[in-house]
Design a protein around this nucleic acid. Structure first.
Length: 271
DNA sequence: ATGGTGGATGTTCCA
């Protein structure tokens, strides 16, 4: 294990790992991450594309996938161990979470990768089961971390599908009743984060500055309209805040050929 | 108010 103190962790909703595996070369060239966390891999574990990923040199891989939907994975230059006792959120067995322990400089770092349910279109728990699932998932995750006080050296990343701050969306007023920015979702996400974590990207970027990680495919000229939302997040426990050394939101990735509608987010720690 | 695009799948669901 190289004795370097730097740890770069990238997270990306890749929206089909098999389709977009070639784009990981661009991500690696741009960010040089030590660990890559992926969501919406959309590939069952028995079909995980180890061969297509081998050239990138991430020797340590963990994945939890299923056919067609969801799916999370971690590609790591550091040795890792997968926690086999992570919860089955909402008892759906739907492959939205991985917990690994990284053999990081200075000692182990726990890394959670989440893909929170998108929640459908109608922001009404009674009318829309997908929205109810999303709220329940966030509440359950918050309760799980609340039951584990004093977490240390822990990082949580992923597509959390909620933009919590006013300037995490292009129009706070117009998105208050749009799933991803409703007060109920924001309250749930904030409560979850506050059980154990600090928002590592907003640590660097003031709250009054617009910040997005996702632009809909349905905007033909996404950069001109710039109707984005910050759905992808990186959180760290407070003991790691002094180690935060930088962040990158790889906005240019939204223009990659056949790209995802999400762009990669990376944080760098000096451990 | 509506529909716009994209992936996996299979004539539709999910985002």
């Amino acid at each position: 294990m190289p004795a370097r103190p730097r740890l770069r962790i990238a997270t990306w909703n890749i929206n089909s790992l098999r389709l977009r595996a070639p784009l990981l070369r661009r991500l690696i060239d741009a960010l040089d991450p030590d660990v890559i966390c992926l969501q919406e891999t959309k590939v069952p574990d028995e079909l995980f594309p180890h061969d297509a990923l081998a050239e990138y040199g991430y020797a340590h891989v963990a994945h939890r996938g299923m056919k067609g939907y969801n799916g999370v994975a971690v590609l790591s230059r550091l040795e890792l161990a997968v926690a086999d006792d992570a919860p089955d959120w909402c008892l759906k067995n739907d492959r939205r979470h991985l917990l690994v322990t990284l053999a990081a400089p200075g000692g182990p770092v726990d890394l959670h990768v989440f893909y929170v349910p998108a929640g459908g279109d109608v922001p009404d728990r009674a009318a829309n089961p997908k929205y109810a699932h999303k709220l329940d998932f966030v509440a359950e995750a918050g309760a799980w971390f609340a039951a584990r006080p004093g977490l240390r050296r822990t990082v949580l990343v992923g597509d959390l599908n909620i933009a919590p701050l006013e300037h995490d969306v292009w129009s706070h007023r117009q998105l208050l009743d749009v799933v991803s920015h409703t007060p109920a979702e924001v309250a749930g996400l904030n409560a979850w984060r506050d059980t154990a974590f600090v928002d590592a990207v907003r640590h660097f970027v003031p709250a009054d500055q617009k910040l997005y990680t996702w632009w809909s495919y349905r905007n033909r000229d996404w950069r001109a309209s710039d109707r984005g939302r910050r759905l992808d997040h990186a959180w760290v426990t407070p003991d790691l805040v002094p180690a935060l050394a930088g962040h990158t939101i790889l906005k240019d990735a939204r223009d990659w050929p056949k790209g995802s509608d999400h762009v990669p987010v990376q944080i760098e720690l000096t451990l």
